[in-house]
Amino acid sequence: MASKLKSTKELMVFLGKSMIAFLESMIFIIVPRPRKNVAGEIVLITGSGSGLGRFLALRFARLGSVLVLWDINKEGNEDTCRMVREAGATRVYAYTCDCSQKENIYRVAEQVKKEVGDVSILINNAGIVTGKSFLDCPDELIEKAFDVNFKAHLWTYKSFLPAMIANKHGHLVCISSLAGLTGVNKLADYCASKFAAFGFAESICIETIAQKLKGIKTTIVCPCFIKTGMFEGCSTAHPFLLPVLEPEYVADKIVDAILQEKIYLNLPKRISFLMFLKSILPVKVLVLLAEYMGALNVMDGFVSKNKKN
């Protein structure tokens, strides 16, 4: 009897908290969430030498953040560093880092801790894509896709999460993809790595909540394809449903989600509805829907030779 009463009580508490959380979500649909101040926060962005990473750096520069820029492309990263200073950042640190190499990540991370301080906002943005059919994709490129798109997240979390926990303050940002939610033609390795990144980030988010680690926030971003060098030549049969997004727009939305401490950000929002349909529709209908949207042919015009974000 006592165990039944305990179970009933736990269920009622769960339902009550769930209702409060639901009502809170409904309120924030109408009333914008308050935005936090990131001035002085140490923001580390991987893949900052071009594309989305560069636009994110520029946004945080205007917000008064301290920028730590990581990219394997030294010249591109230095260009970003210069642009960020011109945008108003007073403290910017550029590091050449190969995010496909665990030892390199750990080494540069130690430099950052000594020379800059504790990273409080970590944005795992670096990524590469091959754009080949699975059987045509060389083993070394498949392995590199996992090293950069997924494994780098493991090593950066191990490097910077302990200080966030000690300081009871930190924000982990995972740039996943629509390809981390559903399969895409000619992107088998990319999809697998982005699925892994999404699952890892979500698991760590749940782990921090379960362990009552206060002050640790998570934002997981799943955008449709972005007009950067990574997806040159990429097109979609139905842009209204699956658009190729402008990087400036995506950067604005990501920064806004971080400031509002949103856990999930799908771009565009209708991706969430498409994923809901995926979960309830029969497989044959899903195939027909994918063909209609052009999801199975989204990469037909894709040309890439191991391009990076």
Score class of each variant (00 low, 15 high):
K214V: 12
K214A: 14
G215M: 08
I216W: 01
K217C: 14
T218S: 10
T218I: 00
T218Y: 04
T218R: 00
T219C: 00
T219G: 01
I220F: 00
V221G: 00
P223V: 08
P223W: 01
P223Q: 09
C224M: 11
C224D: 11
C224S: 14
C224W: 10
I226M: 06
I226T: 05
I226H: 02
K227W: 03
G229P: 02
G229F: 03
G229A: 07
M230A: 04
E232P: 07
E232T: 15
G233Y: 03
C234M: 15
C234W: 13
S235F: 11
T236E: 05
T236D: 04
A237R: 12
P239F: 02
L242G: 05
L242K: 06
L242R: 07
P243S: 09
V244F: 03
V244P: 03
L245T: 08
E246S: 11
E246I: 10
P247G: 05
P247I: 06
E248F: 11
E248I: 13
Y249A: 10
Y249E: 14
Y249T: 12
A251K: 02
A251H: 03
D252A: 12
K253W: 06
K253V: 07
I254R: 00
V255Y: 00
V255I: 08
V255A: 05
D256F: 02
A257D: 05
L259T: 05
Q260F: 04
Q260Y: 02
E261S: 06
I263D: 08
L267E: 09
L267K: 03
L267C: 07
L267I: 15
L267W: 03
K269E: 15
K269W: 15
I271Y: 05
S272K: 12
S272E: 14
L274K: 02
M275T: 12
F276N: 05
L277Q: 10
K278L: 11
S279M: 13
S279H: 10
S279Y: 08
I280Y: 03
P282R: 00
V283F: 12
V283H: 13
V283E: 14
K284H: 11
K284T: 14
K284Q: 15
V285G: 11
V285R: 07
L286C: 13
L286I: 10
V287D: 15
V287C: 10
L288K: 13
A290Q: 09
A290W: 04
A290R: 08
E291S: 11
Y292L: 12
Y292G: 07
M293Q: 09
M293G: 09
M293K: 03
M293L: 14
G294T: 01
G294I: 01
G294P: 02
G294E: 01
A295T: 10
A295E: 08
A295L: 15
A295W: 03
L296G: 11
N297K: 13
N297W: 04
V298Y: 08
V298P: 01
V298W: 08
V298A: 14
M299C: 13
D300I: 05
G301L: 07
V303D: 15
S304W: 00
S304R: 09
S304I: 09
